[in-house]
Computed example of a mutant assay.
Amino acid sequence: MKKILVTGANGQLGSELKVLAAQNAQFEWVFTDREELDLTDLKGLEARLTDIHPQIILNCAAHTAVDRAETEYDLSDVLNHQCVAILAQWSAAHAAKLIHISTDYVFDGTSAVALTEEAAVAPINVYGKTKLAGEQACLRENPEAIIIRTSWVYSTFGANFVKTMSRLMQERDSLNVVNDQIGSPTYAADLAKAIVSILNAGFWKCGIYHFSNEGEISWFEFAQAIQEIGGFDCAVSGIPSSAYPTPAQRPSYSLLDKSKIKQVYGVAVPDWRESLAQCMDLLRIEAN
């Protein structure tokens, strides 16, 4: 039985993988968060990996606070880059498979077409820069690794745009949401299923893959859909990013092209609205 180590187990993706683990008992799952495996302890990380000795590593951990990363460069670099290099080194030395999760923020946002895995990278904030450094270290130290870039992740777990909007729409009469940042949301449950389908594929094709839900929308359109599906009595208006300045600049266009993961692994990529409705149904059930 192959042992799978999941880092960042209490995050959105890690939590969704826990749900799927019960249905995939052909693997021995080891879920770790900071308490069980401190990725900031770079000196002790290799020894801890040897203690656990997984055959597969799913690195779902990251410093994802995009605005805080602007003033927390060191922590962001340790979690998004330096520890990834050690995970990749260890996995290569011990013939372990590695899937590392990355982000659409490695792009500068100037494209007008969906971004393939070969598109030029040029991150415009600290989060994106440290995640790109992590990708580069991952492939340098373990060329057999798989990297999956994703975007706008949400789920029933943790803090995210869907849960925040749902709460605010019940507290306020109106909301302004940026309408000039284009991409596609990712339901973490769908990404978790994609990862498990790769693990169960029976073959391993290394490299970079893109995964998000199908569709091309703005954050404003995403918020509109949350309002409609939730039946919230709140007016949602679109505003330009310039009217809502943030410490970290965001790419204005980061839609991911999912052709490769569909062709290579036959991964199903649901439409964003269908997945959003599923997630909000679960949140409604939990609330009651």
Rank of each mutant, 00 (worst) to 15 (best):
A22I: 12
V19Q: 10
V78F: 08
S241D: 10
A21P: 02
Q89L: 10
L20P: 04
A192Y: 01
G230F: 01
E117N: 08
V196I: 12
D38W: 05
Y187R: 06
S254M: 12
V126H: 04
N213M: 06
A119F: 05
S174T: 14
D51E: 15
L132Q: 04
S76C: 11
D271N: 14
L20Q: 06
W219Q: 14
W90M: 02
K129L: 10
Q136R: 13
A47G: 13
A145N: 01
F220C: 10
K2H: 13
W29F: 06
I229A: 05
L42T: 10
L256C: 03
A194F: 03
A21G: 06
Q23L: 13
L283A: 04
Y187L: 11
H81W: 10
N59C: 07
K3S: 01
V30W: 01
S254F: 08
S254V: 09
P251E: 06
G202R: 05
T50R: 11
V177S: 04
I198D: 00
Y73M: 11
V153L: 11
Q224F: 11
G230V: 03
A225W: 04
A243I: 09
L13D: 03
K129I: 07
S275R: 02
A268F: 14
T71F: 13
Q181P: 08
G207T: 06
A47D: 13
T50V: 09
I229H: 03
N288V: 13
F222V: 07
I208A: 04
L5A: 01
Q227V: 07
S166Y: 10
R172T: 12
E28Y: 03
L45C: 07
A69R: 01
A92G: 09
S197I: 06
A122R: 11
S102P: 04
I195N: 00
S242E: 13
V106M: 03
K131Y: 05
I198E: 00
S242Q: 14
R250S: 06
G158L: 06
I146E: 00
Q12L: 11
E35V: 14
I217G: 01
E118S: 15
F222S: 06
P251Q: 08
V126P: 00
D233V: 12
G266V: 08
H81Q: 13
I198V: 09
E135S: 04
I195Q: 00
Q55R: 05
C234A: 08
A92K: 09
D180V: 07
A192W: 00
T40F: 11
L17P: 00
N59I: 02
A137S: 11
G215I: 05
N10R: 12
C279F: 02
L39E: 02
S197Y: 07
I86Q: 05
A122T: 09
K260W: 07
N179K: 12
F157Q: 08
P143E: 09
T64F: 13
H81A: 15
C60F: 05
S237P: 09
L79Y: 03
H81T: 13
M280S: 02
P247T: 08
T246K: 14
N125E: 05
T71E: 15
G14M: 02
F27S: 01
K258D: 12
K2G: 10
A95V: 12
L75T: 12
S242A: 15
H100Q: 13
S237Y: 15
S15C: 06
E72L: 10
G231Q: 07
L37V: 05
A248V: 08
V121Y: 09
A112D: 15
L283N: 04
T71D: 14
V126D: 02
V121T: 15
E144P: 08
Q12G: 08
A9Q: 01
